[in-house]
Protein backbone atom coordinates (compact mmCIF):
# COMPACT_ATOMS: atom_id res chain seq x y z
CA UNK A 1 0.00 0.00 0.00
CA UNK A 2 1.17 3.49 -0.79
CA UNK A 3 2.25 5.57 2.20
CA UNK A 4 0.50 8.58 0.72
CA UNK A 5 -2.31 8.71 -1.79
CA UNK A 6 -3.65 12.10 -2.81
CA UNK A 7 -6.78 12.21 -4.93
CA UNK A 8 -8.42 15.14 -6.71
CA UNK A 9 -7.00 17.66 -4.28
CA UNK A 10 -8.10 21.25 -4.84
CA UNK A 11 -6.96 24.08 -2.59
CA UNK A 12 -7.98 27.71 -2.71
CA UNK A 13 -7.24 31.07 -1.18
CA UNK A 14 -10.52 32.90 -1.70
CA UNK A 15 -10.89 33.30 -5.44
CA UNK A 16 -7.43 31.90 -6.20
CA UNK A 17 -7.33 28.17 -6.89
CA UNK A 18 -3.70 27.54 -6.09
CA UNK A 19 -3.86 23.73 -6.40
CA UNK A 20 -6.27 22.16 -8.86
CA UNK A 21 -7.27 18.52 -8.99
CA UNK A 22 -3.90 17.09 -8.00
CA UNK A 23 -3.37 13.33 -7.89
CA UNK A 24 -0.23 11.68 -6.60
CA UNK A 25 0.94 8.75 -4.56
CA UNK A 26 4.09 7.92 -2.72
CA UNK A 27 5.53 4.50 -1.96
CA UNK A 28 7.52 3.59 1.11
CA UNK A 29 11.05 4.89 0.84
CA UNK A 30 10.27 6.92 -2.24
CA UNK A 31 11.26 10.55 -2.81
CA UNK A 32 8.88 12.47 -5.04
CA UNK A 33 10.25 15.76 -6.33
CA UNK A 34 7.88 18.62 -7.06
CA UNK A 35 9.16 21.35 -9.38
CA UNK A 36 7.59 24.38 -10.96
CA UNK A 37 8.10 28.11 -11.12
CA UNK A 38 7.26 30.58 -8.41
CA UNK A 39 3.53 30.68 -7.69
CA UNK A 40 2.78 27.33 -9.32
CA UNK A 41 1.34 26.02 -6.05
CA UNK A 42 4.14 23.79 -4.75
CA UNK A 43 4.11 25.08 -1.18
CA UNK A 44 0.32 25.17 -1.11
CA UNK A 45 0.26 21.51 -2.14
CA UNK A 46 2.88 20.62 0.48
CA UNK A 47 1.11 22.46 3.28
CA UNK A 48 -2.26 21.01 2.31
CA UNK A 49 -0.88 17.45 2.41
CA UNK A 50 0.67 18.00 5.84
CA UNK A 51 -2.42 19.92 6.98
CA UNK A 52 -0.41 23.04 7.67
CA UNK A 53 -2.39 25.42 5.44
CA UNK A 54 -2.93 28.83 6.96
CA UNK A 55 -6.16 30.79 6.44
CA UNK A 56 -7.45 31.90 4.02
CA UNK A 57 -6.00 28.70 2.50
CA UNK A 58 -8.58 25.93 2.45
CA UNK A 59 -8.89 22.41 1.05
CA UNK A 60 -11.91 22.65 -1.24
CA UNK A 61 -12.14 19.02 -2.25
CA UNK A 62 -10.23 15.78 -2.50
CA UNK A 63 -8.64 13.17 -0.26
CA UNK A 64 -5.25 12.87 1.38
CA UNK A 65 -4.83 9.25 2.41
CA UNK A 66 -1.89 8.64 4.72
CA UNK A 67 -1.49 4.90 5.32
CA UNK A 68 -5.04 4.52 4.18
CA UNK A 69 -6.57 7.12 6.50
CA UNK A 70 -7.97 10.35 5.02
CA UNK A 71 -6.33 13.33 6.73
CA UNK A 72 -8.72 15.91 5.28
CA UNK A 73 -11.46 15.62 7.92
CA UNK A 74 -9.04 15.25 10.88
CA UNK A 75 -8.86 18.03 13.45
CA UNK A 76 -5.59 19.51 14.61
CA UNK A 77 -5.99 17.63 17.88
CA UNK A 78 -6.33 14.32 16.04
CA UNK A 79 -3.31 15.20 13.92
CA UNK A 80 -1.10 16.21 16.78
CA UNK A 81 0.03 12.69 17.64
CA UNK A 82 1.01 12.14 14.02
CA UNK A 83 3.26 15.18 13.84
CA UNK A 84 6.99 14.43 14.17
CA UNK A 85 6.33 10.71 14.75
CA UNK A 86 4.55 9.97 11.44
CA UNK A 87 4.86 13.18 9.43
CA UNK A 88 7.42 15.94 9.75
CA UNK A 89 8.41 18.97 7.72
CA UNK A 90 11.55 20.92 6.80
CA UNK A 91 10.94 24.35 5.32
CA UNK A 92 13.13 26.84 3.48
CA UNK A 93 12.85 29.01 6.54
CA UNK A 94 13.58 25.91 8.62
CA UNK A 95 16.74 27.47 9.77
CA UNK A 96 14.76 30.42 11.08
CA UNK A 97 12.11 28.12 12.51
CA UNK A 98 14.50 27.05 15.26
CA UNK A 99 13.72 28.68 18.58
CA UNK A 100 16.35 31.42 18.94
CA UNK A 101 16.43 31.33 22.74
CA UNK A 102 16.84 27.57 23.18
CA UNK A 103 20.00 25.56 22.68
CA UNK A 104 20.02 22.97 19.92
CA UNK A 105 19.79 20.25 22.58
CA UNK A 106 16.66 21.81 24.12
CA UNK A 107 14.92 21.80 20.74
CA UNK A 108 15.55 18.08 20.32
CA UNK A 109 14.48 17.38 23.90
CA UNK A 110 11.24 19.33 23.47
CA UNK A 111 10.25 17.23 20.50
CA UNK A 112 11.27 13.94 22.08
CA UNK A 113 9.61 14.59 25.46
CA UNK A 114 6.24 15.47 23.97
CA UNK A 115 6.04 12.49 21.67
CA UNK A 116 8.32 9.70 22.86
CA UNK A 117 9.61 10.43 26.36
CA UNK A 118 12.92 8.85 27.36
CA UNK A 119 15.59 9.33 30.02
CA UNK A 120 18.08 12.20 30.01
CA UNK A 121 21.08 10.00 29.19
CA UNK A 122 19.30 8.21 26.39
CA UNK A 123 18.20 11.55 25.01
CA UNK A 124 21.73 12.95 25.06
CA UNK A 125 22.88 9.91 23.14
CA UNK A 126 20.14 10.43 20.58
CA UNK A 127 20.98 14.13 20.10
CA UNK A 128 24.65 13.29 19.49
CA UNK A 129 23.72 10.61 17.04
CA UNK A 130 21.32 12.85 15.12
CA UNK A 131 23.82 15.70 14.84
CA UNK A 132 26.51 13.35 13.61
CA UNK A 133 24.13 12.11 10.95
CA UNK A 134 24.08 15.58 9.42
CA UNK A 135 27.81 16.04 9.90
CA UNK A 136 27.61 18.47 12.78
CA UNK A 137 30.02 18.15 15.65
CA UNK A 138 27.96 17.24 18.77
CA UNK A 139 29.65 20.06 20.69
CA UNK A 140 27.17 22.32 18.88
CA UNK A 141 24.32 20.71 20.84
CA UNK A 142 24.85 23.27 23.56
CA UNK A 143 25.05 26.23 21.21
CA UNK A 144 22.24 28.60 20.26
CA UNK A 145 20.96 28.81 16.68
CA UNK A 146 22.54 32.21 16.01
CA UNK A 147 25.95 30.70 16.64
CA UNK A 148 25.52 28.38 13.65
CA UNK A 149 25.80 29.20 9.95
CA UNK A 150 22.70 29.05 7.73
CA UNK A 151 23.73 25.69 6.30
CA UNK A 152 24.30 24.23 9.77
CA UNK A 153 20.92 25.47 10.99
CA UNK A 154 19.22 23.90 8.01
CA UNK A 155 20.97 20.61 8.78
CA UNK A 156 19.81 20.84 12.40
CA UNK A 157 16.22 21.25 11.10
CA UNK A 158 16.68 18.10 9.02
CA UNK A 159 18.05 16.16 11.99
CA UNK A 160 15.13 17.39 14.09
CA UNK A 161 12.62 16.27 11.46
CA UNK A 162 14.21 12.81 11.53
CA UNK A 163 14.58 12.36 15.26
CA UNK A 164 11.40 10.33 15.79
CA UNK A 165 11.85 8.30 12.62
CA UNK A 166 8.78 9.57 10.72
CA UNK A 167 7.31 7.79 7.73
CA UNK A 168 6.76 10.88 5.62
CA UNK A 169 8.84 14.06 5.45
CA UNK A 170 7.95 17.18 3.52
CA UNK A 171 10.93 19.24 2.35
CA UNK A 172 9.87 22.64 1.02
CA UNK A 173 12.83 24.37 -0.67
CA UNK A 174 15.23 23.11 2.03
CA UNK A 175 18.34 24.26 0.17
CA UNK A 176 17.17 27.33 -1.70
CA UNK A 177 18.63 30.00 0.58
CA UNK A 178 21.99 28.24 0.80
CA UNK A 179 25.28 28.26 -1.02
CA UNK A 180 25.87 25.84 -3.88
CA UNK A 181 28.47 23.86 -1.97
CA UNK A 182 26.27 23.55 1.11
CA UNK A 183 23.26 22.69 -1.08
CA UNK A 184 25.18 19.90 -2.61
CA UNK A 185 26.21 18.58 0.75
CA UNK A 186 22.64 18.57 2.06
CA UNK A 187 21.38 16.70 -0.99
CA UNK A 188 24.09 14.04 -0.65
CA UNK A 189 23.37 13.81 3.05
CA UNK A 190 19.62 13.35 2.46
CA UNK A 191 20.29 10.56 -0.03
CA UNK A 192 22.33 8.74 2.61
CA UNK A 193 19.69 9.30 5.31
CA UNK A 194 16.94 8.01 3.09
CA UNK A 195 18.89 4.82 2.37
CA UNK A 196 19.36 4.38 6.09
CA UNK A 197 15.87 5.23 7.38
CA UNK A 198 13.76 4.43 4.35
CA UNK A 199 11.37 7.34 4.89
CA UNK A 200 9.14 8.62 2.11
CA UNK A 201 9.48 12.26 1.14
CA UNK A 202 8.03 15.07 -0.90
CA UNK A 203 10.88 17.29 -2.04
CA UNK A 204 9.73 20.69 -3.28
CA UNK A 205 12.09 22.98 -5.14
CA UNK A 206 12.07 25.37 -8.05
CA UNK A 207 15.57 24.16 -8.82
CA UNK A 208 15.13 21.32 -11.26
CA UNK A 209 18.81 20.37 -11.01
CA UNK A 210 18.52 19.65 -7.30
CA UNK A 211 15.22 17.80 -7.66
CA UNK A 212 16.59 15.59 -10.44
CA UNK A 213 19.51 14.77 -8.25
CA UNK A 214 17.54 13.57 -5.26
CA UNK A 215 14.12 12.38 -6.44
CA UNK A 216 13.06 8.95 -7.68
CA UNK A 217 10.09 10.45 -9.44
CA UNK A 218 9.30 14.04 -10.38
CA UNK A 219 6.00 15.90 -10.59
CA UNK A 220 6.10 19.07 -12.67
CA UNK A 221 3.59 21.73 -11.58
CA UNK A 222 2.27 24.57 -13.66
CA UNK A 223 -0.44 27.01 -12.62
CA UNK A 224 -1.69 24.83 -9.78
CA UNK A 225 -1.77 21.56 -11.70
CA UNK A 226 0.56 18.65 -12.15
CA UNK A 227 1.24 18.64 -15.87
CA UNK A 228 3.68 15.74 -15.95
CA UNK A 229 4.93 13.02 -13.62
CA UNK A 230 7.61 10.48 -14.49
CA UNK A 231 10.52 8.65 -12.97
CA UNK A 232 13.52 10.95 -12.83
CA UNK A 233 15.39 8.87 -15.36
CA UNK A 234 12.61 8.97 -17.91
CA UNK A 235 11.83 12.61 -17.31
CA UNK A 236 15.43 13.46 -18.16
CA UNK A 237 15.58 11.29 -21.25
CA UNK A 238 12.04 11.56 -22.56
CA UNK A 239 10.23 14.58 -21.20
CA UNK A 240 6.71 14.56 -22.62
CA UNK A 241 5.23 17.90 -21.67
CA UNK A 242 6.57 20.93 -23.58
CA UNK A 243 6.87 22.79 -20.26
CA UNK A 244 9.13 20.06 -18.86
CA UNK A 245 11.21 20.17 -22.03
CA UNK A 246 11.53 23.93 -21.74
CA UNK A 247 12.53 23.69 -18.07
CA UNK A 248 15.23 21.15 -18.87
CA UNK A 249 16.69 23.46 -21.50
CA UNK A 250 17.13 26.16 -18.84
CA UNK A 251 19.98 24.13 -17.29
CA UNK A 252 23.07 24.25 -19.50
CA UNK A 253 26.23 22.30 -18.79
CA UNK A 254 28.69 24.99 -17.65
CA UNK A 255 31.65 23.13 -19.12
CA UNK A 256 30.25 22.87 -22.63
CA UNK A 257 32.22 24.45 -25.47
CA UNK A 258 29.44 26.93 -26.18
CA UNK A 259 26.63 27.76 -23.79
CA UNK A 260 23.70 30.11 -24.05
CA UNK A 261 21.04 31.44 -21.72
CA UNK A 262 17.71 29.80 -22.38
CA UNK A 263 14.49 30.81 -20.70
CA UNK A 264 10.76 30.44 -21.16
CA UNK A 265 9.33 33.71 -22.47
CA UNK A 266 6.00 34.84 -21.05
CA UNK A 267 4.34 34.53 -17.66
CA UNK A 268 1.97 32.01 -16.07
CA UNK A 269 -1.78 32.74 -16.03
CA UNK A 270 -3.61 34.59 -13.28
CA UNK A 271 -4.88 31.88 -10.93
CA UNK A 272 -7.84 34.05 -9.90
CA UNK A 273 -9.12 34.02 -13.44
CA UNK A 274 -8.67 30.61 -15.03
CA UNK A 275 -10.04 30.28 -18.53
CA UNK A 276 -10.54 27.06 -20.51
CA UNK A 277 -7.56 25.66 -22.39
CA UNK A 278 -4.11 24.47 -21.37
CA UNK A 279 -2.61 27.02 -18.94
CA UNK A 280 0.79 26.69 -20.66
CA UNK A 281 -0.56 27.16 -24.21
CA UNK A 282 0.32 30.88 -24.52
CA UNK A 283 4.00 30.11 -23.74
CA UNK A 284 4.14 26.78 -25.55
CA UNK A 285 6.11 26.60 -28.78
CA UNK A 286 4.12 23.60 -29.98
CA UNK A 287 0.56 24.58 -29.14
CA UNK A 288 -2.26 23.73 -31.52
CA UNK A 289 -5.71 25.34 -31.66
CA UNK A 290 -7.28 22.78 -29.28
CA UNK A 291 -4.79 23.85 -26.60
CA UNK A 292 -6.45 27.25 -26.37
CA UNK A 293 -10.02 25.99 -26.15
CA UNK A 294 -9.98 22.73 -24.19
CA UNK A 295 -8.28 21.98 -20.90
CA UNK A 296 -6.22 18.81 -21.32
CA UNK A 297 -7.12 16.01 -18.90
CA UNK A 298 -4.45 14.62 -16.59
CA UNK A 299 -4.04 11.05 -17.73
CA UNK A 300 -2.40 8.65 -15.31
CA UNK A 301 -0.76 5.38 -16.13
CA UNK A 302 0.98 3.43 -13.38
CA UNK A 303 3.47 5.84 -11.79
CA UNK A 304 3.35 8.41 -14.58
CA UNK A 305 0.96 11.15 -15.60
CA UNK A 306 0.57 13.75 -18.32
CA UNK A 307 -1.78 16.61 -19.16
CA UNK A 308 -1.10 17.59 -22.76
CA UNK A 309 -3.12 17.53 -25.96
CA UNK A 310 0.00 16.57 -27.89
CA UNK A 311 0.26 13.21 -26.11
CA UNK A 312 0.19 10.41 -28.62
CA UNK A 313 0.23 12.92 -31.46
CA UNK A 314 3.98 13.35 -31.55
CA UNK A 315 4.32 12.04 -35.09
CA UNK A 316 1.65 14.36 -36.34
CA UNK A 317 3.20 17.35 -34.58
CA UNK A 318 6.70 16.72 -35.77
CA UNK A 319 5.57 16.30 -39.35
Amino acid sequence: MAVLDVKHLTVGYGKVQAVRDVNLSLEKGEILGIVGESGSGKSTLGSAITKLLRPPGKILSGEIRFEGEDLVPLTEKQLRHKRWTDISVVMQSGMNALNPVATIRRQFEDVILVHQPMGKAKMAERVDEMLQLVNIDPVYADHYPHELSGGMKQRVSIALALVLDPKLILFDEPTTALDVVVQRFIVQNLKMLRRRYNFSALFISHDLGTVLEIADRVAVMYAGQIVEMQTTRNLLRHPKHPYTEALLRCFPDPRAEIIEAVGIPGTPPDLADITPGCPFAPRCTRSISTCFSETPAYVMEKDTGLACHLAGREAEVQA
Partner: peptide, 9 residues
Protein backbone atom coordinates in the same frame (compact mmCIF):
# COMPACT_ATOMS: atom_id res chain seq x y z
CA UNK B 1 12.97 31.70 -11.59
CA UNK B 2 15.31 29.97 -14.02
CA UNK B 3 12.72 30.42 -16.73
CA UNK B 4 12.94 34.21 -16.46
CA UNK B 5 16.63 34.52 -15.56
CA UNK B 6 17.54 34.26 -19.22
CA UNK B 7 15.60 37.41 -20.06
CA UNK B 8 17.53 39.50 -17.50
CA UNK B 9 20.87 37.94 -18.45
Amino acid sequence: DVSIRAEVI
